[in-house]
């Protein structure tokens, strides 16, 4: 992930004086994204603040997008690159549907994402991409990418301005790093936590990141993709975790009657 480190945000002004002044086609628009896979669901989330340096450009800009009935994409980094990358990938998915009369699997979308990112190897999309969804076996899946297309499937991934705050927390809570099972207890297996626990982790990650990272805040959009036939009671039925939290089911994009996607939105602090 360090292959493409962003330029330092607050450059020393004395350095600018003796440098050739050239057009810089990149910017960095803050925010953070995060995805966690469960056994039969995936949660993928992003905050809605878009900023540049110390300025908040808008308090509501989307970073997470539904691609198919079983795949959601999140981008972070340079917003213009992220938005245009999503737009291009949606185009490719439409042509795939024209040709095959079905939606692309998350595994295939992941490989497509790699090809498209690496295709811009020498003028990269400055976008960290995370895919979340349900794979062909009905298991929750998360794929994470660097801006030039290196990717792997994981149980969870955080990216963006608060990556350094959130990822260690997830390493501990999802991968059970630095935890030891009680003597005689079952060994830990990542990717098997219940939805309510995962939702709590995601929301805590973002509220905490909002406290300590100026580029994160304003609002949280959290997509839950559920396996075909899975109960939705633990999301829509329960007395929800936080007030002001809204849950809405997104209609099927394809034939329907299979995987279901929900959008959970809640406010984050605006300061």
């Amino acid at each position: 992930m360090a292959l493409f480190a962003p330029p330092p945000m607050y450059a020393d002004p004395t350095m600018a004086a003796d440098k050739q002044h050239a057009f810089n086609p990149y910017s960095e628009n803050g925010g953070s994204i995060l995805a966690i896979a469960g056994a039969d669901f995936t949660v993928i989330a992003g905050d809605t603040r878009q900023s540049e340096g110390y300025s908040i450009q808008t308090r509501y800009a989307r970073k997470v997008w539904q691609l198919t009935d079983r795949c959601v994409i999140a981008t972070n980094g340079f917003a213009a690159d992220g938005n245009n990358f999503v737009k291009r990938i949606k185009q490719r998915l439409e042509w795939y549907e024209h040709a095959h009369q079905k939606q692309m699997s998350i595994k295939a979308i992941a490989r497509l994402t790699q090809t498209m990112l690496y295709g811009n190897r020498f003028f990269p999309y400055f976008a960290y991409v995370i895919l979340g969804g349900i794979d062909e076996d009905g298991t929750g899946a998360v794929y994470s990418f660097d801006p030039i297309g290196s990717y792997e499937r994981e149980a969870c991934r955080a990216a963006g301005a608060a990556q350094s705050l959130i990822q260690p927390f997830l390493d501990n809570q999802i991968y059970f790093r630095n935890q030891t099972p009680a003597p005689g207890a079952e060994p830990f297996v990542p990717g098997r936590l219940p939805l309510s626990t995962v939702l709590g982790l995601v929301i805590d990650s973002f509220t905490s990141a909002t406290e300590r990272e100026i580029a994160v805040g304003d609002g949280l959009e959290l997509y839950v993709v559920m396996k075909k036939g899975r109960t939705t009671d633990d999301l829509v039925g329960s007395d929800n975790l936080i007030k002001n939290m809204q849950v809405q089911e997104l209609g099927a994009l394809g034939e329907g009657g299979s995987e279901r996607t929900f959008l959970v939105s809640l406010p984050l602090k605006r300061d």
Binding site: Y26, S27, Q57, T58, R59, Y60, A61, A80, N83, N84
Partner: peptide
Amino acid sequence: YVDLLGTTYSAPTLATGIGAHIAQ
């Protein structure tokens, strides 16, 4: 809003350049 980088966003109040710091 849209600018030379292709950065886009929408908000109920907007200002560009130095206006983003002083007027916004």
